[in-house]
Design a protein around this nucleic acid. Sequence first.
DNA 1: TGTTAATTGTTAGCATACAAACTAATTTGC
DNA 2: GCAAATTAGTTTGTATGCTAACAATTAACA
Lengths: 163, 163
Amino acid sequence: MPKPQNLNLNSSDNNHRLSDDVISPLEETHYVLEDQVGFILRGVSQRHLSLFSRLIPDLTPTQFSALSKLCQLGQASQNELGRLTAMDAATIKGVVDRLKLRELISSEPLSSDLRRLILKPTSAGRQLYNEVVMAAHAVTKETLEPLSDKEKEVFLDLLKKLT
Amino acid sequence: MPKPQNLNLNSSDNNHRLSDDVISPLEETHYVLEDQVGFILRGVSQRHLSLFSRLIPDLTPTQFSALSKLCQLGQASQNELGRLTAMDAATIKGVVDRLKLRELISSEPLSSDLRRLILKPTSAGRQLYNEVVMAAHAVTKETLEPLSDKEKEVFLDLLKKLT
DNA sequence: TGTTAATTGTTAGCATACAAACTAATTTGC
DNA sequence: GCAAATTAGTTTGTATGCTAACAATTAACA
């Protein structure tokens, strides 16, 4: 009979690293998916996305990011908007295309630099932004709902350090 | 001057909102993108993905999740594997298809339940898993690198609460 | 037994996300 | 003044992730 499996993948009592913890080189490779930050991060992102699409069915998170930035700035070039919303050029292009298709933003070339597209929200875009901005706050609130106020504060501080 | 960070979540000093927080109804709609948990979460996910693909160019995070689970379990049905790796049926199908294409896993119908596909890692799949599992640990480590040990612990605890 | 319900897997469509290759315009460096 | 480098934007390809609709199979139960 093989030794009782003492690997204890879900061990939470790791408060004692004693000699009985001596592990073979092979065991060194133990990988508990559920404990990896990337895996948990993906789960939290899924939950956030689910909340967002329930409370704001008309816009995706990135669409709302772009629209809100544009409404606050008044205007921006496409590339600039991508930088401000942490999207690369290819991604912001797709987002802008879909917002333009729905006539929530408009674009025109900048005469002084013909490479640039100057984007502005349309009145419909500004109206939609004003209509959903409270719901956007609610998304943030509901996402953080499992935490106490103090925990929320600490969590956001730590999360920002990981960007 | 900002308060020094206090990681003690049980602290009774729940620094209350002061009178300078009183805001007008119009200001109520203030939306600071950079302070929204969803936006920061996306940034952290981007950084994690970047680290992952640098340290493990051969597999995506979801592919590695599926492969690792399968290597640890020995076998699983496709739907079951999806549940264990937090992917819905459509998503796990795409991941499994790509792993099968590269012959890292194999599938065969289960005779006792013709709806199910039994998935197993191939020897190449197991070998690749063993080769990259240490790098996977390094991804987690590097992702959390900006935090102190204590902060890592607190952060993961809070993150798990948000799943 | 026979109808219904649940599960499994597939397909299609939309939206991110990134890399790479590309065009075009602008700025620089000599 | 002109070539080179940089910047802006587009396009393509791959991968992820969701929803929704669907077929096939199995399980539940009246």
